[in-house]
Design a protein around this nucleic acid. Structure first.
Lengths: 123, 123
DNA sequence: AAAAAACCTCTACACTTGTAGAATAAAATT
DNA sequence: AATTTTATTCTACAAGTGTAGAGGTTTTTT
C-alpha cells in the first residue's frame, strides 16, 4: 500500500512533529490551508492504510506515524531504482551525480560521505 | 502533466525500443500480458498528455517517445528531492549513500564519478 | 476470397484521489 | 449556561487510473 501525494504531505508533518493533534497539522499547512474536513479525510485514509495511528487523550486524538521516514523513503527510492534502472543502484547513482546539479561543495561533501561508507563497510 | 505507473511502464519500453509498433510493445510485456485494448488506451492517453507521438507507415503507427528518459527522470527525482528533503539534493545524496545498500565496489565507482564531476565543474 | 489476426476508437466501470459540505459531538471561550 | 471553535464521520463528486469489451477497419494467413 502506498500513500498518495497529499497524504505524503501530511506524513511529512507527522514525521516532523512526531506526534500531533489535528490542530498542529493544520498549523503546518501553508496558506491557503485546506479545510479541516479535508485533512480529517486524509488522516482517516492514512489510518486505514496502516500508516498512522493515534492515542486518545481524553477525547482528542494525538496522531503519530507508524513508519519511519527513512524506511518509507528507502522503499520509495528502491521502487524508483527498480523502475528506472533495472534494479541497479549504481546505475542510478551515476545518473544521479551527473544529472542533478550539485555544487562542488556538495559533491565534496558527498565524496566524504562515500568514503566513510566505504570504510564502514570494509570493517 | 505526469504519467501514471502503468503508462510509465509503456514509456520504458518505448525508451528501450526507441520506436515501436503496437506489436513490439506487447511483446515486451511479461506474462500475463494485458489486453491489446488496454495498451491502446494507455498509448492514447500518453499521446493526449504529450509524451508520445507516432509516424504512419501505411496505416500502422510507429510510436516513439517525445521526452528523453533522462529528462523525464530528472524531473522525477527532483520532485522526490523537493518532497522529501526540503529541496536539498545533498541531503538526499547523503541519505542515498547510507540507505541504499551499495557494495564497496559500487561505492568506489561512485566516488570516481563524483571526482570526475568535481573536476568537470572546477574547469 | 474467406477467415483470422491486429489495431484503433468508443464506451464502460470500479477504484483511487483531492477536496470539502452537512451533521454531529465535544471542547473551549465568553 | 450559551456560544463559538474544533474535530470526526458520512456523503459526495469530479478527475484520474487500470482494465478491457464491442465494433469497425485493415492486414495477414490460409
Amino acid at each position: 500500500m502506498k500513500l498518495s501525494k497529499t497524504e505524503e504531505q501530511v506524513m511529512q508533518y507527522l514525521w516532523k512533529l512526531e506526534k500531533a493533534f489535528m490542530k498542529d497539522i493544520l498549523t503546518e499547512f501553508p496558506q491557503p490551508k485546506p479545510a479541516t474536513t479535508t485533512v480529517a479525510t486524509l488522516l482517516k485514509r492514512m489510518i486505514d492504510k496502516g500508516f498512522v495511528n493515534y492515542n486518545l487523550y481524553g477525547k482528542s486524538r494525538e496522531y503519530y506515524p507508524l513508519i519511519k521516514k527513512t524506511d518509507y523513503f528507502s522503499k520509495h527510492v528502491n521502487g524508483l531504482i527498480k523502475n528506472f534502472f533495472n534494479n541497479s543502484a549504481s546505475q542510478f547513482a551515476s545518473f544521479f551525480t551527473s544529472e542533478t546539479n550539485l555544487s562542488v561543495t556538495e559533491l565534496e561533501e558527498l565524496r566524504k560521505l562515500i568514503d566513510s561508507q566505504i570504510k564502514e563497510q570494509k570493517k
